[in-house]
Amino acid sequence: MIAADYFDGRSSRRHPATLGLRDGTVVVEGDFGRRSTALGAVEICTGADQTLSTIRFADGAMCEIRDSAAWAAELAGAGIGADAVAHAERRWHWALAALAGAVLIIAASYAYALPWIAGLLAPAIPQAVTQSISDTVLKGLDGGLLAPSKTSPQRQQEIAAKVAALAGPGQLPPHRLLFRAGPTLGPNAFALPGGDVVVLDELLALATRDEEVVAVVAHELGHLRHHHGMRQLLQSAVVSFVVGVYLGDVSTVVAGLTALLLESRYSREFELEADAYAGRLLLATPASIEPLIDTLLRLEQAHAKRRAADRGGLFGATDLLSSHPDTAGRVNALRAMKR
């Protein structure tokens, strides 16, 4: 017999009562009389440690039990234990295991699940959508960072023809070469998700031969082939959302920088993937991979010089758009392909 407080569900009057379990029935006795109900027909809520335990009857009446430990023992005697979740919630080692598990799940989603899902979804996005995204981005750049190209239409056609000759008809991903001048961006080329590959005049000026330009375009075609643009868009949307929810209360700047840091890992992988694609295309050409390697090294030098020239532009557009870190690693990977 355990002391309890009985409430009849119709008034807040407290009735001191005794509570017991007999052959699968709950028996409550007090000044209100005696009430026996089958164990299956009451809702049992056992509290941890100092918390009150309750049992609730179908008609809204309830008992509060102060001595939770004694009541739990009584229940255990009848073969009723806490459910698995409540059991885990009361033990530190389960809680720590859950913490480790949660961290593991989040890390695995970031490293594997998210890129995998984005890889599945990106090719399924209709061309009309990707094209409209490309157009918007290009319009924005044309209004600011980019200027009309000074390269002659003839030379543009020559380069386009050399790119088309990289593989048989229909084997390259659908693309359109666009030429622009980008005085603030420096020697560069980039692919937009809709299939536009923008080549800057500064890259043509830096290249010593056309093969080098073709090699860079081949790298950008790799981005198109693997749908890197859309994948990056999807992944960063999810990453910034999650980081925003987690860190949103701290500061938007902290959240933004953290998201940027986390996303940069994805872009490194994409660069290597695009290099591998370009490498396969270039191996079949007479000049082989060398033009790509030369350009990578020269680009690195050029960008280092520009960085030295304008210090303080650490978060400027130059560094954000030229996310090609670790040139040595990329060159090594390309050389390994040749062997």
């Binding site: 941890a48 440690d49 979740v85 885990a88 919630e89 009361r90 033990r91 530190w92 389960w94 809680a95 859950a98 913490l99 598990g101 949660a102 799940i105 989040i106």
Partner: peptide
């Protein structure tokens, strides 16, 4: 006590 409830349920939600 609440930490244990929170983390166990967070894990299960994930």
């Amino acid at each position: 006590e609440y930490f244990r409830i929170w983390i166990v349920n967070l894990f299960l939600s994930l």
